[in-house]
Design a protein around this nucleic acid. Structure first.
Length: 359
DNA sequence: AATACGGGGAC
DNA sequence: GTCCCAGTATT
């Protein structure tokens, strides 16, 4: 019953939202921008990322790659280096793929329909609606974490937002509420409202223009909405990195396997089911036999333990440093030998970055 | 329908 | 510690 559509309520919602927006300016570098390239770039950076975290990345990308052609022409490693620390690195891969598609196959011109935009790599329903509405004034409602929260609370929608039913339901509500006279302005407004007013924790209900008709406020369930069904289990992994040195050079490895941190660099890795490992176990590993073999190290040092939590994994890593008396014989493009000073041009996972800072 | 995929900030 | 963030791709 509470999920029923009420045109009167909907009208109030949109009217109050737009009033609120005028009274609560929130300047952003991409607001008012009409260049679909810059809008797209900002939206990819902001996927599952707080505005405060993404902003400096957007400015650096815009400065270095002002056009889609300049981005398309960039070496992969440079893009990943610029993306370093932002997480969800498949976004960087898809960013490049889409830039090269637009520059190479479309003469640099962005698709101008929702379907055309959404068909490109790294662009789902949210990003397609954002680009379509901000760049081309197309009437597509954005549905992001803010929209889930605002609609769930104001209209008392209790369907879990991470369910198939929930995704469909919230998209339908969002689309019906959209102000088709100004889709871009409305989309910006509802996301700003979610970020500033209808916050996840301690929302400002006392000063909220929706207070009188907000279902969650009426029923005292503001803190229970939106409903999320799934909770995730984290896998624990123990990494023992081989930091192999010869005359000031280090052996790096590019991560290419179907695993975390694809396209980033780290070191040869021995993964273990156990937290601790001794030298004999390390020397029995395939990685050791391949990369060190009979080249017996002169001395070694084992680092402290570093820990990093990812979305679905918890990593515990140690770095074993070895000085080798003889140079490597490498026939594998997976590995790179680099001077210690040149490491700054490679993109590393945070846990490797932390270690390198202490090295 | 579930799961994988980062990192940071707020509490 | 937990939760969430201008989500998407894959299985």
């Amino acid at each position: 019953m509470e999920n029923n559509w009420d045109p009167g309520l909907a009208g109030q919602f949109t009217a109050r939202l737009l009033e609120w927006k005028d009274a609560t300016p929130r300047p952003m570098p991409w607001k008012g921008v009409r260049d679909p390239y810059l809008i797209w770039l900002s939206e990819i950076i902001l996927q599952q990322t707080r505005v405060e975290q993404g902003l400096p990345y957007f400015e650096r990308f815009r400065a270095r790659f002002p056009t889609v052609e300049s981005l398309a022409a960039a070496p992969d490693d440079e893009v990943f280096k610029l993306w370093e620390g932002l997480g969800y690195y498949s976004r960087a891969r898809n960013l490049l793929e889409t830039a090269r598609y637009i520059a190479g196959e479309r003469g640099g011109k962005f698709p101008e329909t929702y379907e055309g935009i959404k068909a490109m790599k790294g662009i789902g329903p949210y990003t397609a609606a954002a680009v379509a509405s901000f760049a081309f004034d197309l009437p597509h409602a954005v549905v992001d974490g803010n929209v889930y929260r605002v609609l769930a609370r104001v209209f008392g929608l209790v369907t879990p937002v991470d369910s198939t039913d929930g995704k469909r339901l919230f998209s339908e509500w969002a689309q019906k509420l959209l102000d088709i006279a100004a889709p871009g302005v409305y989309n910006q407004a509802i996301m700003d409202f979610g970020a500033i007013q209808c916050k996840p924790a301690s929302p400002a209900c006392g000063q909220c223009p929706m207070q009188s008709f907000c279902r969650a406020n009426q029923t005292g369930k503001v803190d229970e909405l939106p409903v999320k069904a799934r909770r995730l289990a984290k896998r624990v992994r123990y990494f023992h990195y081989l930091v192999l040195r010869y005359e000031g050079k280090l052996l790096l490895r590019k991560r290419t396997a179907k695993d975390i941190w694809q396209h980033l660099y780290d070191f040869p890795l021995v993964e273990s089911e156990q937290k601790e490992m001794d030298l004999a176990q390390l020397q029995a590993s395939p990685a050791w036999k391949t990369l060190v073999g009979k080249n017996s190290p002169m001395l070694f040092h084992c680092s402290q333990s570093f820990q990093q939590t990812l979305s679905h994994q918890h990593i515990i890593a140690r770095f074993w440093e070895f000085d080798l008396p003889d140079p490597w014989v490498l026939d594998d493009a997976e590995y790179i030998v680099e001077e210690r000073e040149n490491l700054t041009k490679f993109a590393f996972p945070k846990i490797v970055d932390w270690y390198l800072k202490k090295l």
